[in-house]
Design a protein around this nucleic acid. Sequence first.
DNA 1: TTTGTTTTGTTATGTTATCACATCCGCACA
DNA 2: TGTGCGGATGTGATAACATAACAAAACAAA
Lengths: 139, 139
Amino acid sequence: MNEQDILKDAERHCTKTGARLTPLRRRVLELVVRADAPVKAYDLLSQIDRSNTSAKPPTVYRALDFLINAGLVHRVEALNAFVACPQAGHGHAAVLYICEVCTKVTEVQGARPGQEHKPEGFCVTRSVIEHYGQCMNCR
Amino acid sequence: MNEQDILKDAERHCTKTGARLTPLRRRVLELVVRADAPVKAYDLLSQIDRSNTSAKPPTVYRALDFLINAGLVHRVEALNAFVACPQAGHGHAAVLYICEVCTKVTEVQGARPGQEHKPEGFCVTRSVIEHYGQCMNCR
DNA sequence: TTTGTTTTGTTATGTTATCACATCCGCACA
DNA sequence: TGTGCGGATGTGATAACATAACAAAACAAA
Ligand SMILES: [Zn+2]
Ligand SMILES: [Zn+2]
Ligand SMILES: [Zn+2]
Ligand SMILES: [Zn+2]
């Protein structure tokens, strides 16, 4: 799936759900999609700055919050970075395979936990698996 | 497993592997174990400070690095926090179930991915799953 | 046009983490 | 005993990541 298709898809998804993909948010999404690798908030910020001198940290963090909530972007927790989601608004939890050499990220989704499809030939050296919710006592 | 047992186990594990559990590192481990919940680096720092005025950020981050490498502590990526491992030096990847209400963390390990044993009654609302390694092209 | 809501701008600050270099301490070896 | 070595810790500075609080602007509905 190429950049343009992802952006088109995002547009459609927002139209359908009523989310407002403003020019600023769209600009940030474009930057994340084009990065084609996990991208840092302050890198986005400096890229936005080229067109909009007034961009400050809250500018980019708010846009990212919106995009994450809209299901268009995922946060990579262990890298403090962000990647575009190839499947706008999918319901499943994202499972990310991140190559530490070329930085490429492959996102897969499993019908149920444990049934994700590991990318062909990917060799895992470290996994981060954290489930958040309510324990039995706190329900 | 109680605090004292975990600390004893850590001691044994370090003796066996040749890792040097110095007083400072032991002190940090004690604080993490006693927290009984994910604990922040700067919270550890301020606790150390009570006994050692000279503690600075690198003091605690270096101790944490050691403890993580020794398999005695895990980093909770999505919280920027740290928890004690109940099974010193286990080989398996840790799977953490984190209650967002009471902050209690339950660590489980699966013989193979997807076979982790979810704690009784735990209701997952959000999962962070990130696998790091080398992709097919980079091996 | 008025009014209320959402988005963006702006300043400041809070939080998390590392770098670089100095010093100390335990240990092996002369 | 002294001397050198390497790992651990002390120290000051700064980098990197993120949010609070309030003001202004844009937008949509009435
Ligand atoms: Zn996704
Ligand atoms: Zn690769
Ligand atoms: Zn563990
Ligand atoms: Zn709970």
